Simulated scan of single mutants.
Amino acid sequence: MNVKNKEPRSKKEILTATLEMLESNSYSSLTIEAIAAQAGVGKTTIYRWWENKARLVLDAFLMTVESEFEFDSNKSIQDNFKQQLEALARILNSKIGKSTLTIVTESEEIAKDFYVLFLMTKRNEAKQLLQAAIDMGELKPAINLDITLDLLYGPIYFQILIYKQIPDADYINDLLIHVLEGITVAN
């Protein structure tokens, strides 16, 4: 078998093993040895692709969220952001989400990568959605897109990180009503 053909499968197996291990272990008790055993690979295989446990967990998080945050141009702005905020709350409350928040707060380097690989990408997609709504005359043209996104997403992070509670559908609906009320063009 060609080694190049095996790499993607092994990487996915390692990432999947990491997610499985996090379901029954905290981030602090997670070990590369246990992940390697779960994935059926040697530790050296893991260290070939990831320099440490934090990098591995970040990649497992990115794999998990890959398809979770898709915008749908056929949905309203409110429905799109409702779906986004609910997905964010659900993921950040999961074991991989909590572990990712842990490593982001512990490492400036990981925080930068989280910002570049996850937040910036998703923010740019959200900005495009807001800009399309502005172009269609649904939202006020003078809104600051970054502040609007902070108003939408910030409370979710705040609820989870500070209050240690998961925003429910009512909270998310109220948040959307308050934010959208301020930026929607009056009919």
Rank of each mutant, 00 (worst) to 15 (best):
K98V: 01
N2C: 04
E86Y: 03
A186V: 15
G40S: 03
K122W: 04
L145S: 05
L130H: 01
A186S: 15
R90E: 03
G40A: 03
I77A: 08
E70M: 12
K98Q: 12
M21S: 12
Q131T: 13
I162G: 13
M21G: 00
F81N: 01
L62R: 06
S24A: 07
I110P: 13
A169F: 06
N5W: 09
A111P: 11
E7C: 08
T184E: 09
T184W: 03
T64V: 04
E51T: 14
Y171P: 02
E109W: 01
K12T: 10
F81Q: 02
E7F: 09
L88Y: 00
S107G: 05
S99E: 02
L30K: 02
K75I: 08
S26Q: 06
I160N: 10
K127L: 01
T102L: 09
E106G: 11
M120V: 12
R9S: 08
A186E: 14
S107R: 03
A54L: 07
I32E: 01
Y27S: 06
I96H: 04
S29Q: 09
I166C: 11
I46L: 02
A39V: 02
Q83F: 08
T105L: 09
Q128Y: 02
A87F: 02
K98H: 04
Q83G: 05
V185G: 01
V116D: 05
I14P: 00
A36K: 05
I147K: 14
D113L: 10
T18W: 04
V185A: 13
Q83M: 12
N74C: 10
P155R: 15
T102D: 07
M120Y: 12
A142N: 15
A142R: 15
K82D: 03
T184P: 00
F71M: 07
A60D: 02
F118W: 12
V104Y: 06
L129F: 01
G182N: 08
I77R: 07
S28K: 14
S107H: 06
N93Q: 07
A34W: 00
T121W: 04
L180D: 00
S10A: 11
F71Y: 13
Y163I: 11
D79S: 13
V179M: 11
N144G: 13
D170S: 15
A111F: 08
W50K: 05
D170H: 13
V41I: 08
I96M: 05
I147T: 15
L175T: 09
E106C: 08
K82P: 01
W49M: 09
L151F: 14
E108I: 03
L58V: 12
N25E: 10
L58F: 07
Y47A: 07
L117Q: 13
T45E: 06
Q78C: 07
N2R: 10
Q165F: 10
N52L: 04
S10M: 09
K53M: 01
A186M: 14
L92A: 01
